[in-house]
Design a protein around this nucleic acid. Structure first.
Lengths: 201, 201
DNA sequence: ATTTGTCTCAATCAAATGATTGATTGGTGC
DNA sequence: GCACCAATCAATCATTTGATTGAGACAAAT
């Protein structure tokens, strides 16, 4: 029998600890940036010794890669929640907007971690191999939406799908990054994105 | 008589030193991120002692604010280069694109510094007071372009200028951030932005 | 009961790091 | 020549920080 995850005892399974470590690290990145990320602070937040932290994650570099991996897992889980088969282009685009709205509302600070790790990806190959494909996956998903929308005639016929997807995902990321942006402003941006690419009658 | 700036001697004026320090810091941020910024490395790059660095810039916090200020000065200088009076909306938008293209080509890595400092602005008031107004100035400039374009009929009549500006500047920032983006892809994005907001005949 | 492997911690290290001190140098004005 | 000030540096400090060591606790397997 597989041992049940114990939330009470002080001894945790390796996997659980690693998850807790990744979450603690994410929280500290939100508060102080990658710049202010300290192994001691993570250990303290998880409630373990520094040596225990190093038992589960060998180095700080591996720890940051672990954070990236935890982001990927969250991303995967989210991508699988809403099946998009059988939907037309506009429905898919709005589904994309729905997912985004949810992320912005539920995890407004997550973009801090994403941005820091995308920046770090420039000089850290391990992080790059996780973050860049994530970003590309998202972009490609939107490229597909535009291709579909052009072929079924619901979108403008002269769209460049790659460029439109870059604009869409780029604008969305940027909105998420702005703490001062109100929800109504976000709605206006999403509406404007729709107007920008939908077929004008 | 004001003493001329000496580029040869080992004694520099305070202002020149501060400029050199800011530039060195920017370079190190490009290479290692804010995360890897060390006062010693900056001093070494400028060719001065750590104590001398601290003579000109009291603390690391002040140093990062100095970098932000140096960005602002560059931004100001660039904004004043192309007068935009007497131009119509489309001309102004294309002027904006020109400036952007130039920045991407001439200083492809500058966006790293900008991004790191915008991120830092969340927890550093001094940096926020420099970076946020910069970003807002740019956005407002684009808002004005859309307002003008709507009133003279060259842009779509149903644009939300604030939203359109957020999309435009957000997409541009995101493109700059992507090292892998080719120049032709950048052109496609700028063209697509134009198509998205211009009046369809 | 003993062994084995996983998980944990107190104590400690060596290096890095931001900052300071006290003294020196060179130029400017008088 | 002298006083004054900005600019500079060698040496040093006090912490911080990532990482290691060696020993112990606990549970499951033998």
């Amino acid at each position: 029998m597989t041992p049940e995850p114990s939330t009470s005892g002080k001894r945790e399974s390796g996997d659980d600890r690693r998850v807790a470590i990744a979450l603690a690290a994410r929280q500290i990145i939100i508060e102080k940036g990658l710049e202010g990320l300290r192994t001691r602070d993570i250990a303290a937040r998880v409630g373990i010794n520094i040596a225990t932290l190093h038992y589960h994650v060998p180095s700080k570099e591996a720890l940051i890669a672990l954070v990236a991996d935890s982001l990927r897992q969250d991303f995967r889980a989210q991508a699988l929640r809403h099946p998009r088969a059988g939907k037309n282009a506009l429905e898919r685009l709005r589904l994309e907007f729905d997912d985004f709205r949810e992320a912005v509302v539920e995890m407004p600070e997550l973009i801090v971690v994403l941005t820091e790790l995308i920046a770090r990806a420039r000089r850290d190959k391990a992080v790059a191999e996780i973050m860049i494909p994530m970003r590309e996956f998202w972009r490609n998903q939107v490229v597909d939406i535009f291709r579909l929308g052009m072929s079924d005639g619901s979108f403008r016929p002269d769209i460049d799908p790659e460029a439109a997807a870059l604009i869409t995902t780029g604008a969305m990321s940027d909105c998420w990054r702005r703490t001062d942006l109100s929800l109504s402003q976000l709605e206006q941006v999403l509406t404007e994105l729709e107007h920008a690419f939908i077929r004008r009658s």
